[in-house]
Amino acid sequence: NIFRILGDLSHLASIVILLRTVQKTQRVDGISLKTQILYVLVFCTRYLDLLTFRWKSVYNTLMKMVFIGASVRVIQLIQGCKIQNPVAYKDMIFRDTLQIKYLVGPCAVLALIFNYKFTLLELCWSFSLWLESVAILPQLFMLSRSGKASTLTTHYIFALGLYRALYIPNWIWRYYSEDRLEKLSVFTGLLQTALYSDFFYIYYKKVVKGAGFELP
């Protein structure tokens, strides 16, 4: 359905925006390395089914590979800036202060409690959903502390948030047309979108209505 395709496309767009920006400018200011590391973890734990070789479609398999590959490439590029632009890199690390363990730990516990089956694949899948819903927090935390972000960073976060938001009408659609309801996905998806809502509001006020992006 249209919402799901648009959601996937905006997810893809967010990654392309990020990749191109870092590649072109060799700058990492405003980007949280921790959030990017969390995304690698999210994709690697979610798409473990690639290893079972019971692939669903060319589209599905290809997108999964692209997401894993692109998230690893982002880390590589950021690490490249360490040499190219050490001052900006150090400044980023210095401001990227939210501790990952406070996110990974609770997500692991939640995955142990909420899952469909107590198997490694299912636990990892559930973990990836929980982790994805909070993976943006180091990035938002960084933004809220610095109070300023480049327009591209905000476009990136916007596209990323839009993706899960578009998945919500997709789930409603699938509930009625396929009688299908993936409770875990829906709940974590709502949580994820809720975390973005504040950001969406500021984005709308500042970026869409002109003016620079500045948090109060």
């Binding site: 799901r4 996937d8 997810h11 089914d49 079972t52 019971r54 669903k56 479609s57 599905n60 997108m63 999964k64 997401f67 469909y116 089956k117 694949l121 299912e122 899948w125 998945y167 997709n170 993936e182 996905s185």
Partner: peptide
């Protein structure tokens, strides 16, 4: 019955 094959979303 949520198996890994059911998870067709990204």
């Amino acid at each position: 019955d949520n198996t890994i094959e059911d998870k067709d979303e990204l």
